[in-house]
Design a protein around this nucleic acid. Structure first.
Length: 427
DNA sequence: ACCCTCCCAATGGCCATGTG
DNA sequence: CACATGGCCATTGGGAGGGT
């Protein structure tokens, strides 16, 4: 990924991963979705669980109003489902294995819950983790999402990638061939043939865009060979203005919205309204403390290798009971209580299963008794059945039975029930 | 709710001019 | 001459607003 230049300076030759993945031309909304999903992935995630995005967040990601939001979501996810990525997994590069998959493996809109769900194919995991690079927080992803055009987005990724490497090799700049940059940005042959165009339409807008909307800013110098610009050298710095920037969706209600987002996305509390209610009722700080405790509790349970029944349930409990750092007794109590609830549920289920089996057995016994009846006995039984129909006022079934006898469907169904009732019990 | 029109910003191409 | 630069223009697509 990094090769030594003759002069000894470092060249970020390419982000092999991205090139080898043949990152296809994703549309802006598709890129936004992917980036947003990347921010949700945790390194520790074993399999890619479905990732939930609230409608509010989706608005931020895709931009625009809520009216045609689902249509745009549909369009973007359909694109992601269709587009094939081929990439060489660096861990398996030796055997030349090429993985082929699509960006996301399923996308669903969950009616009534105010959120949508996306799922990645697990094959993609190493690729996405590599891609994830340095933007790990919701805030950063949001900032990226604000970037309007996809050249800006890709340059931002490039800068962040180099910024990450700088932590390791202390590089101060990244120098790339113009041709590489064009390839990286997937600019078609013939477009921006002149550097001037490339600069005025790609580099400068990206510079402006990134400085205005994200946590970094960059600058570049043109390195010429003769009169032709051969290479671009990027330098970068932290964007100090970023802290004061208004992030989309947060501007109206301070930090509260993000708390709702945490409730919805991390703890799966839905619908959106419920999360809002919780924030309004208990307040930001209360919930923050409670959720921290809930996280610790969940981690503890998971460490013990136990399954967490309902993350949302624990969060709700934590909020409603006001878990605070010093009140670990509650936590223990809750744990015990929760265990009891689970035990009870299991016992109930077993009981139900048992009853079900018993019922089936009785029905089978009844049917065999019915089938082994002699002619006369059966006639008498059917007469009884008819009487029962009259008694219960079941005129529709009665009519059918009188017309055609025991026919598949309603009549047979009623007869089976009757048989079960009359012959199922031990005589 | 749907369609139409207008406006604006983004985009990409062309051209005149400047410069080593 | 070859290329950079900046201005200009046509096209496109999304959003807002108004009419049916």
């Amino acid at each position: 990924m990094i090769k030594k230049e003759e002069g000894g300076g470092l060249i970020a030759a390419s982000n092999d991963l991205l090139i080898e993945a043949q990152w296809p031309q994703l549309k802006i909304n598709e890129q936004r979705l992917v980036l947003y999903m990347l921010s949700l992935i945790q390194r520790g995630d074993k399999d890619f669980k479905p990732y939930r995005i609230s409608i509010r967040e989706l608005c931020n990601i895709m931009g625009g109003s809520r009216n045609d939001l689902y249509a745009r979501f549909d369009e973007a996810t359909e694109g992601l489902l269709k587009k094939v990525i081929r990439w060489i997994n660096p861990d398996e590069k030796a055997d030349g294995r090429i993985d082929k998959t699509t960006w996301c493996s399923s996308a669903s809109i969950i009616p009534g819950k105010g959120c949508v769900e996306l799922r990645f194919d697990p094959t993609l995991k190493p690729f996405l983790l590599a891609l994830k690079g340095n933007f790990t927080t919701l805030g950063e992803a949001r900032a990226v999402i604000r970037l309007r055009n996809h050249y800006s987005l890709r340059i931002y990724q490039f800068i962040k990638y180099n910024q990450g490497l700088a932590n390791v090799d202390h590089r101060k700049s990244a120098r790339v061939e113009l041709s590489w940059l064009r390839e990286y940005l997937a600019i078609p042959e013939g477009t921006y043939r002149l550097f001037g165009h490339f600069k005025s339409k790609v580099l400068l807008p990206a510079k402006k865009d990134i400085a205005a909307k994200t946590d970094v800013q960059f600058d570049f110098i043109q390195i010429k060979k003769g009169r032709k610009v051969q290479e671009i050298e990027f330098t970068w710095s932290k964007n100090k203005r970023y802290q004061q920037m208004e992030l989309p969706g947060i501007s109206d209600r301070g930090g509260q919205t993000s708390m709702e987002d945490i409730l919805i996305m991390e703890f799966g509390i839905s619908p959106e309204k419920k999360a809002q209610e919780l924030v309004e009722e208990y307040g930001h700080d209360h919930i923050k403390a409670a959720l921290q405790m809930a996280r610790e509790y969940i981690n503890k349970v998971r460490k013990r290798g136990q399954k967490v029944e309902s993350v949302g349930g624990i969060a709700r409990k934590a909020i409603e009971e006001g878990w605070k750092p010093q009140e670990s007794i509650i936590e223990v109590e809750y744990e015990v209580q929760q265990k009891a609830v689970i035990q009870e549920r299991i016992a109930k289920k077993q009981q139900e299963d048992g009853q079900e089996a018993e019922k089936r057995q009785k029905q089978e016994l009844a049917m065999s008794r019915y089938e082994s009846m002699g002619e006369g006995e059966r006639e008498a039984f059917l007469a009884e059945f008819r009487e029962n129909l009259v008694a219960t006022g079941n005129t529709i079934v009665l009519k059918r039975y009188d017309e055609a006898g025991v026919t598949p469907g309603m009549v047979e169904g009623m007869l089976a029930v009757f048989i079960g009732e009359r012959l199922g019990e031990d005589v």
